[in-house]
Computed example of a mutant assay.
Amino acid sequence: MKFSTVMKWITALGEGFLAIPIIGGAFVIGTGYSALGVMFVLHVITLVLSIRDMQGKVGSILGLLTSVVSVIPVFGWFMHLITAIVLLISAITSRRTSVI
């Protein structure tokens, strides 16, 4: 499995956790919104790896946008949910090759 696919799985799980209505919101607020900064950095890393591996980039770009607009409560939840789904689909459909 390529590193970009592994990062898609990791970011999809992170976005999925943040999409849990009360728990994800409490986590974001409890960390002083730094969780969104961490997710932004992880999405940048995933995007760079996806470009290098010539794989789908939509999930990572959507994740970057989500990290920025997630300070809006209900809209942020919706964006985390959509981003998690897109990243999961992208990770599942990635070409299966081994890491060298």
Score class of each variant (00 low, 15 high):
residue 17 F to Y: 15
residue 96 R to A: 14
residue 8 K to L: 04
residue 96 R to G: 08
residue 62 L to D: 00
residue 78 F to M: 14
residue 91 A to C: 08
residue 26 A to L: 14
residue 26 A to W: 13
residue 28 V to Q: 06
residue 49 L to N: 06
residue 31 T to N: 10
residue 85 I to F: 02
residue 68 V to H: 02
residue 14 G to Y: 08
residue 37 G to I: 13
residue 34 S to C: 10
residue 74 V to W: 12
residue 63 G to C: 05
residue 86 V to M: 00
residue 31 T to F: 07
residue 3 F to A: 14
residue 5 T to S: 12
residue 73 P to Y: 04
residue 100 I to V: 07
residue 60 S to N: 14
residue 83 T to K: 07
residue 25 G to E: 10
residue 38 V to K: 08
residue 78 F to L: 15
residue 100 I to K: 14
residue 59 G to P: 02
residue 55 Q to C: 08
residue 44 V to A: 09
residue 20 I to S: 05
residue 54 M to D: 15
residue 48 V to K: 05
residue 5 T to C: 06
residue 9 W to C: 11
residue 44 V to S: 03
residue 24 G to E: 08
residue 64 L to Q: 00
residue 8 K to S: 07
residue 60 S to Y: 02
residue 2 K to M: 11
residue 96 R to P: 06
residue 16 G to A: 12
residue 27 F to H: 12
residue 25 G to C: 10
residue 100 I to M: 09
residue 44 V to R: 01
residue 86 V to S: 00
residue 8 K to D: 01
residue 33 Y to A: 11
residue 31 T to A: 09
residue 69 V to E: 04
residue 89 I to Y: 09
residue 87 L to C: 06
residue 59 G to V: 00
residue 36 L to Q: 09
residue 34 S to N: 11
residue 78 F to H: 05
residue 19 A to Q: 02
residue 69 V to I: 15
residue 63 G to N: 03
residue 97 T to N: 10
residue 44 V to W: 02
residue 4 S to W: 02
residue 63 G to A: 09
residue 13 L to Y: 03
residue 40 F to L: 15
residue 85 I to Y: 01
residue 93 T to I: 09
residue 27 F to A: 15
residue 59 G to T: 00
residue 50 S to V: 02
residue 23 I to M: 15
residue 32 G to S: 09
residue 49 L to K: 11
residue 77 W to K: 11
residue 87 L to G: 02
residue 4 S to K: 03
residue 7 M to G: 09
residue 59 G to Q: 01
residue 42 L to M: 14
residue 53 D to Y: 04
residue 24 G to C: 12
residue 14 G to F: 11
residue 9 W to Y: 13
residue 87 L to F: 06
residue 39 M to R: 07
residue 47 L to V: 10
residue 79 M to I: 00
residue 51 I to H: 05
residue 40 F to W: 13
residue 56 G to C: 05
residue 94 S to H: 11
residue 54 M to C: 11
residue 45 I to R: 08
residue 16 G to F: 07
residue 54 M to S: 15
residue 95 R to T: 14
residue 59 G to R: 00
residue 92 I to T: 09
residue 43 H to P: 05
residue 32 G to V: 07
residue 28 V to G: 01
residue 53 D to V: 08
residue 71 V to M: 13
residue 41 V to A: 13
residue 59 G to H: 00
residue 77 W to L: 15
residue 86 V to Q: 00
residue 71 V to P: 04
residue 44 V to E: 01
residue 31 T to D: 08
residue 71 V to R: 10
residue 64 L to G: 03
residue 40 F to N: 06
